[in-house]
Amino acid sequence: MAVASVETSIRTGSMTRVFLYLVLILFSLFYLLPFVVMVLNSLKPLSEITGGNMMALPEVWTVEPWISAWATAQIGIEPTGLSPYFWNSIKMVVPAVAISTMLGALNGYVLTKWRFRGDTIFFGLMLFACFIPFQIVLIPMARVLGLTGLAGSTPGLVLVHVVYGLGFTTLYFRNYYMAFPTELVRAAQIDGAGFFNIFWRILLPSSGPIIVVSVIWQFTNIWNDFLFGASFADLDSQPMTVALNNLVSSSTGVKEYNVHFAGAIIAALPTLVVYIVAGRYFVRGLMAGSVKG
């Protein structure tokens, strides 16, 4: 249950209720089907997929496709499996999420507690930056990464993701800190506390919910990014999504559907785990920000 939920006072008849449950269950099947198919077929030998029924349970259960997808499948030219790319993604996501969240928090703090002339314009500029189609920055970005020697490297990708994630993290923290009593900040100021001291001791300790929102948001977006990875990474820094796409769309040899499915699940696992473990905090934190802000 959502925290602030108020149940409707609409009343429904029993026929209607049967219909409601039917529709709701049908839709849950629609949402579950692709994932169930992926899981089932990732546990089958290839012959059961090409010669059998995709919706059927495996006759022979095997984890071979998973091992292959992780460690031995042909990706591009190397038979390395997805594992090196998994670590590439981790090395890119962790610093990018940390830096963009930290900057977002500081920006939100300044924009709400140290307001100055033109701060709304600044915020508007950041906000619009969230929504630009990234195609508009691809060419100059490739150029700048090339000139600075960051092309094809993980630090280059971290930079890209920090820059284009800043708008969202700033938005979240700004909305959240809007609701934080400014009097507390002023009182601390009178007591002689400085800029960072106030942030560190007064705002940060109560920022838990919005840090969770920002981290989940950034983690999912950056982990799932394909466009920047495909444009700016080389073999040593390619993220998971790009490797998965290479695995699935490689035109040579037999299409190993079971390996593709296993690979897709591996690529989806980190964000799914985050969603299952922390999804409810995400919705709650967002509400805390928007309801009060």
Binding site: L24, F27, S28, Y31, L32, L33, P34, F35, V37, M38, N41, M54, T220, W223, N224, F226, T241, L244, N245, V248, Y257, H260, F261, G263, A264, I265, A267, A268, T271, L272, V274, Y275, I276, G279
Partner: peptide, 24 residues
């Protein structure tokens, strides 16, 4: 139970979604 089932696809990458539906 239903709400997270409706929501989970949002957590997936479009590449994963594309792969699943491509073969489906």
């Amino acid at each position: 139970v239903l709400r997270p089932i409706y929501l989970y696809p949002m957590a997936l990458s479009f590449i994963v979604t594309g792969t699943a539906w491509k073969w489906l």
